[in-house]
């Protein structure tokens, strides 16, 4: 309310007056909403139609009673559920790890003063901007050489992981050697996520009061204690932003998954790969494709709808 008044005043517009310019403004805004939502809306409508229906009715029109079906969603969920589980197993640890590493790095590079620091910072930040094509071949070589499964065998038999998941029953979380590649993917995403998370946390830590951190030092706290008892508790809002942003990044990635998961598809496929497989067929079952797109995008859409403001903050801060 106050923000609105503030803005209204700033541009000199009386919000209550009916002004042709104002009408045009809202018309434009609504038109743009139509533009931004139309692919989603027509996608959703298509996903709810039978094949006969979507071939004959305009894409944005809701299905008729006889043309309505939930079958595409059924097919999509069946096809994608294990890949979505894989994506969760990938995105959650990769996101948390890169956020933690980013927070460590940002603390070490912001709240201390030493020569050459900016050079290290520059290397971190430049890491945000590298095109991943420049590392693809080494990555595929690296993970061909490193046999994660054998390396982990003494500590963790990853071939027999299983868990009880509500709704889905017993899920074999790992019943295939390919699951080692999920671990490879976690490590890879963690590493490439560090630059952006470091940048996000650094922007935040720069604003922390230097005197407060000095006070803690004089109170007898070492660098680790200052981090654990002062900096970490104060970074919780930034953790929310970073986790949300990084989660969508990892979830949405296709390229690393293509390279690191050997056969592309298979039981280790993540959501983006599985969706691409599902929709890449010759037969144009657009209703199933659209349903698949919604199912695969659901976690990020949920995160976005629930925490949109934090996501926007991550987006604006990540520049």
């Amino acid at each position: 309310m106050s923000v609105r008044d503030d803005l209204a005043e700033r541009v000199g517009v009386d919000l209550e007056a009916v002004d042709p310019l104002r009408v045009a403004l809202y018309a434009t805004l609504v038109g743009l909403v139509a533009f931004y939502l139309s692919p989603l809306e027509s996608g959703l409508m298509t996903a709810l139609k039978t094949e006969a229906e979507f071939a004959t009715s305009p894409p944005f029109v809701p299905p008729t009673v006889e043309g309505f079906t939930l079958e595409p969603f059924g097919v999509a969920i069946d096809t994608l559920s294990s890949a979505i589980l894989n994506s969760i197993m990938l995105a959650v640890p990769a996101t948390v790890l890169s956020a933690l590493f980013g927070s460590f790095a940002a603390y070490g590079l912001t709240n201390f003063e030493w020569r050459g620091q900016l050079g290290v910072v520059a290397l971190f930040i430049a890491g945000i901007f590298i095109p991943y094509q420049a590392v693809l071949i080494p990555l595929s070589r690296l993970w061909a050489i490193v046999d994660t499964q054998s390396l982990l065998a003494p500590v963790l038999d990853i071939t027999v992981f299983s868990a009880q998941v509500p709704v889905l029953g017993t899920v074999e979380l790992a019943t295939h050697p390919h699951y080692a590649s999920i671990i490879n993917l976690i490590i890879t995403h963690t590493a490439y996520g560090i630059p952006i998370t470091t940048l996000l946390f650094r922007g935040y830590y720069k604003k922390l009061s230097t005197e407060m951190l000095e006070a803690a030092r004089l109170d007898g706290a070492g660098a680790f204690t200052v981090y654990r008892r002062i900096v970490l508790p104060l970074s919780m809002p930034m953790f929310a932003v970073t986790l949300i942003y990084q989660f969508t990044q990892v979830w949405n990635d296709l390229l690393f998954a293509l390279i690191i998961i050997p056969s592309g598809s298979g039981p280790a496929a993540v959501a983006t790969i599985a969706l691409n497989e599902l929709t890449g067929g010759i037969i144009q079952t657009f209703n199933t494709q659209m349903a698949g797109a919604f199912v695969a995008a659901l976690p990020t859409l949920l995160v976005y709808v629930l925490f949109g403001d934090k996501f926007a903050k991550g987006v604006a801060g990540g520049t």
Partner: peptide, 8 residues
């Protein structure tokens, strides 16, 4: 909203 979606 579209920015939160994947390229795929």
């Amino acid at each position: 909203l579209p920015f939160s979606l994947s390229f795929v």
